[in-house]
Structures are given as structure tokens and as C-alpha cells.
């Protein structure tokens, strides 16, 4: 069969294959480029890059180090923690908002209102991130700043508490992730066959129970896909987060409890933006490319895990009872 088609020339098919090939080559090229640029820092630090802290100070030292004796020691544990924690919190926030919104749109809102709401949500998903950043800096940061009272300030001594912190970054990220999650959740809920609803009602279940016990679990693969896309955006989002995150690359300290929400963070993506002013120094440049490399790895690992999760959930079960 291969032999037969081998000598037939399909221009469109060829073009499409060429396109696919170009895509793969481009991705490989990006990985190669980033890793080559990051290599001096990666090879110098090894696994320490993932474990050690003190990125802010290291960047400053690298910037002032003499050209003949570049400083290549970096530890990005704080940045990785920043990325993961902001994304996680944003996912939790947007989970609550999104599922509530999606249920309202699909199950409670009358049709015209529902389609208007969907249009608004889709529009929100297309707002450029810098706009979210500006709104964050002008509204969210002063809002969060109100929570920082004198008593709270006294608790933390390593740095100043301002409205630019983990909470602000997570809130801004929430509003960026939520539209994606809502859109996909709405699609998933709409695609639940009517028969599942009828099944629930025929068992004498209340509307709330039908939604929570039958609709949501049935729509779970789509909702999970929404969260995965949202998390992808959360991990990679740079501009908006860099404007509200506080810019200090430390691991949120659990000993502060909820106050650790008010401490500054510096996710990997925001670090690339924030520290780019010092990029004229080759060591700093390499360190920032190492941030990029970590993001690529994180993104890849995440999408593999996500793939696995989707497979699990699409065949899995409804939530445990009792």
C-alpha cells in the first residue's frame, strides 16, 4: 500500500506534511536555542539550580562581576516555587469562579442571557495580558494592600509587605485563566447528553444534586481540559504577573501561614521580564535563558501529566459518595 501511494504526488498533502515538519523543526530549534544559551548556567549549577535560593542577589552579583570573572552561580528554587504556587492558587480561585459561572450559564441563565455571558467570557479570554497587568497594578494591588496592617507588617522582617505579592499575582492570574476554564466548562456542560439530566430527575434528584452528582462528573473531561489550558497559561504568563508579583524570588514561607500570601514572589516567567534590564551581562543572559529552559521543561512535564490526567478522568468515575 505504501508503495502504491509513494509515487503519487499530492500537492496539498505534501504541503501539509511540509508544514507539520516545519512546526516540529521550529520547536526543536527553540528548545535547542534556549538550552544552548542556558548551558553555561545549567552546567555550572547542575541540580543546584533547582534546589538553591537567592536568585535576586545572584543576579545583582552577576551584573557587577568583572567581565574576566563572570559569576555563574544561580539557584532558582524560589522562582520555581513562585511559578507553581501562583499557578496553583490561581487555579483554585478560578476553579471556584469558573465552575460556578459555567453552571449559572448552562443551567440557570435564560438562553439570551447565557449567550450574552458566553460572549463576554470569550471576549475576556482575548484581552491582551498587559491590560490585565495594568488593571492588576491599578486596582488589585491597592486592594490587596489594604489587608496589610501594622500588625501583619510586624510579623515579617525579611522584606517589606506591599500590595505586590503572591495574592495579587494569583488574583490577576485568576482573571486570566478563568475565561478559558469557563469557556471549556460551558462547552463540556452543554455537551452532556440530555438523557443524563433526565436520568437524574427520573431518580427524583433535586436540580442541585443533578448538577453536582451527574452533570459535573459527566462534564469532567472537558472541565479538566479547561484547567489544563488555564494552568498552561498560568505557568507561562509573564507581563501581567511581573507587574504585580513583587519581584523577589523567594519561596513563600509557610511559617507565616496566611500572611505568606502577602509576601512577594517572582515566577520564572516574570523573572525573565524583570531581570532583562541586566541582560547585557552574558552571565545574566544565560541565567534568564535558564529560566526559559526551566519553563519549557515545566511546560512539557505539565502537558504530559495533563495528558495522563485527561485519560484517567475521561474514563474515571463520579465522586465518591457518603
Amino acid at each position: 500500500m505504501m508503495k502504491k501511494t509513494k509515487f503519487k504526488f499530492h500537492p496539498v498533502e505534501c504541503l501539509m506534511r511540509l508544514g507539520a515538519l516545519a512546526g516540529i523543526v521550529a520547536i526543536l530549534f527553540i528548545f535547542a536555542f534556549v538550552f544552548i544559551k542556558a548551558w553555561p548556567v545549567i552546567s555550572h549549577n547542575g541540580l543546584g539550580l533547582l534546589i538553591n535560593r537567592g536568585f535576586d542577589k545572584q543576579i545583582s552579583e552577576a551584573f557587577y562581576a568583572p567581565v574576566s570573572d563572570p559569576m555563574l552561580t544561580f539557584g532558582m528554587a524560589g522562582l520555581i516555587a513562585g511559578t507553581l504556587v501562583t499557578t496553583l492558587i490561581a487555579l483554585i480561585f478560578s476553579g471556584i469562579i469558573s465552575i460556578g459561572s459555567a453552571i449559572t450559564i448552562c443551567e440557570f441563565a435564560p438562553r439570551p442571557l447565557a449567550s450574552a455571558l458566553i460572549a463576554v467570557v470569550r471576549l475576556m479570554a482575548s484581552i491582551p495580558s498587559v491590560v490585565f497587568g495594568l488593571i492588576g497594578a491599578m486596582l488589585v494591588v491597592p486592594f490587596v494592600d489594604q489587608f496589610i496592617t501594622l500588625d501583619i507588617e510586624k510579623v515579617v522582617s525579611e522584606f517589606y509587605l506591599t500590595g505586590r505579592n503572591l495574592l495579587s499575582a494569583s488574583i490577576v492570574l485568576t482573571f486570566m485563566i478563568a475565561p478559558t476554564v469557563i469557556t471549556l466548562s460551558v462547552d463540556a456542560l452543554y455537551s452532556v447528553p440530555d438523557i443524563y439530566r433526565e436520568t437524574g430527575y427520573a431518580f427524583g434528584m433535586t436540580r442541585f444534586r443533578v448538577i453536582s452528582r451527574i452533570l459535573l462528573p459527566s462534564a469532567r473531561p472537558g472541565i479538566v481540559a479547561g484547567f489544563i489550558l488555564g494552568a498552561g497559561r498560568g505557568i507561562g504568563e509573564a507581563i501581567a504577573v511581573s507587574m504585580v508579583c513583587g519581584g523577589l524570588g523567594m519561596i513563600p514561607d509557610l511559617k507565616y501561614g496566611f500572611i505568606s500570601l502577602l509576601t512577594p514572589v517572582l515566577p520564572l516567567s516574570a523573572a525573565i521580564i524583570n531581570k532583562s534590564e541586566a541582560m547585557s551581562v552574558p552571565a545574566v543572559e544565560s541565567a534568564l535563558f535558564a529560566c526559559g529552559a526551566l519553563l519549557l521543561v515545566l511546560g512539557t512535564v505539565f502537558s504530559l501529566v495533563a495528558r495522563f490526567l485527561v485519560k484517567r478522568f475521561s474514563s474515571g468515575g463520579l465522586v465518591n459518595e457518603t
Binding site: D56, T162, G247, I273
Partner: peptide, 15 residues
């Protein structure tokens, strides 16, 4: 070290 860094002149002024 514990100071909050800003990426631009305008942002530090705003802060």
C-alpha cells in the same frame, strides 16, 4: 535586599 524592585522609572514613582 528586602526592598521591592521595579522595572521602570514610572512604576517606582507610582509605588
Amino acid at each position: 535586599e528586602k526592598s521591592i524592585p521595579f522595572t521602570s522609572s514610572a512604576l517606582i514613582k507610582q509605588a
